[in-house]
Design a protein around this nucleic acid. Structure first.
Lengths: 233, 233
DNA sequence: CAGTGGTCTAGACCACGGT
DNA sequence: CCGTGGTCTAGACCACTGG
């Protein structure tokens, strides 16, 4: 008789099964926590935990007094894993190679960059161009701008041995990231570095990071043709 | 004296602040739950909830006996919102227009598609080509394959008024999604539909969905040049 | 083995927000 | 108003895993 202790995962799975198999179609209001707790023979807190998880995952929407409603759109969210370039390349079995192509002298950020990073007028930035390769095959071109107002010590780093991303990770924490994905045509320099035809379609990531509101860096990563990025829910 | 009740969010924010301001650098082992509960003057469950949230967000790693360790890499994952095309277009103020360009007769899935959707040999699929537009401006070309083994009723839908995505959402639930992002060159047909030069760089999403292991559909979405997708952490 | 997180319970109070 | 979810508490047992 003494049924094993009911866990919140069991409740979660059972509720999810009922949603998936159509027992509770979209827009259904689920029974309240007390009622479900009675049905499952557990405490209300256990049901609460299970429903919290369903809510986090986006399966249901919870509102006080209104109750818990099954969402129509099953999942409009995905988790994106953002691997380190080094790991991604080494995972294919190839050797990771980094090359600093160019290092611009510090200068005032141009208007588009100030807008992008919310920089003040006249803010100084350091611009870099780098190539990441898998063995002898070019993999990704990185254009990088580092805000010297937030990261003054970048001015004295040479970035010859270590890429700016790995250097920054060890040097400066950040609190906010802003990611943009797009497709861009390979311009002359990028085409040359990536060894592809000018105008080739390149998967492009732009990543801005901030530290408590202060801009840290903008990275523009253009991947060699054929690159794919996958996301798992 | 009687301090206001301590909430798990307060604990969470305080712990996060200590991690961010360097009080607890990477690889630090945080004090145990009991100890923190004593410090904050709350129940252990409250601290537990706060640390669970930190763990979910990727700031710390928790292991039994070992304790709670501050993660080195702040966060290597982002949440990606996947808006409905209709919503995305209407959010810009433009009118959403959908057009069915072509509807292929049902046929056996070619090898690459079988591999992609884990379909059995000889499985029948329905192929569609659609155009989504923002007002008079083409926005996205959709190539869609629907597995007739899993969704036989698709054979009798005409998809003239309603796009396959909206139709499927109302018709078939799904349990798993697989997303791939890339950049592709505009082929002849896509270039014509999107009114861009052949070879133009197009941001491309491929989305496979399954229902308990059975393939439902593969959508290949090619967006007009200039499209950007953003992710928030 | 022993310490740490993982979880359940039973009860309680509270805040929000439909009715 | 008052029902529903949100959260806290104090105590307990358990499971995993590092030493």
């Amino acid at each position: 008789m003494t049924a094993a202790r009911v866990t919140w995962r069991q409740v979660h799975d059972e509720l999810l099964a009922r949603i998936r198999n159509g027992h509770w179609p979209a827009d259904t209001i689920l029974p309240g926590e007390v009622e479900l707790a009675a049905e499952f023979g557990c405490a209300r807190a256990t049901v609460n935990r299970a429903m919290q998880a369903l809510s986090d995952a986006g399966y249901v929407e919870r509102k006080r007094k209104a109750g818990t409603r099954v969402r129509a759109a099953p999942r409009r969210q995905a988790r994106l894993a953002i691997p380190l370039i080094r790991d991604e390349i080494e995972a294919t079995g190839a050797a990771y190679r980094y090359t600093l192509i160019q290092r611009d002298p510090p200068r005032a950020a141009p208007g588009w960059l100030r807008a992008r990073l919310r920089l003040a007028d006249g803010a100084q930035v350091l611009g870099l161009t780098c190539l990441h390769a898998a063995g002898s095959r070019p993999f990704m071109v990185e254009h990088r701008w580092i805000s010297l107002g937030t990261v003054p010590q970048a001015a004295s780093a040479d970035f010859v041995q270590t890429g700016p991303n790995e250097w920054l990770v060890g040097e400066v924490p950040f609190t906010d990231i802003d990611l943009t994905f797009s497709a861009t045509a390979a311009a002359g320099e990028a085409a040359e570095l990536l060894d592809c035809a000018p105008g080739a379609a390149l998967f492009t990531i732009e990543r801005c990071t901030w530290l408590e509101g202060d801009a840290v860096t903008l990275a523009r990563l253009q991947f060699a043709p054929g690159y794919q990025m996958t996301a798992a829910p």
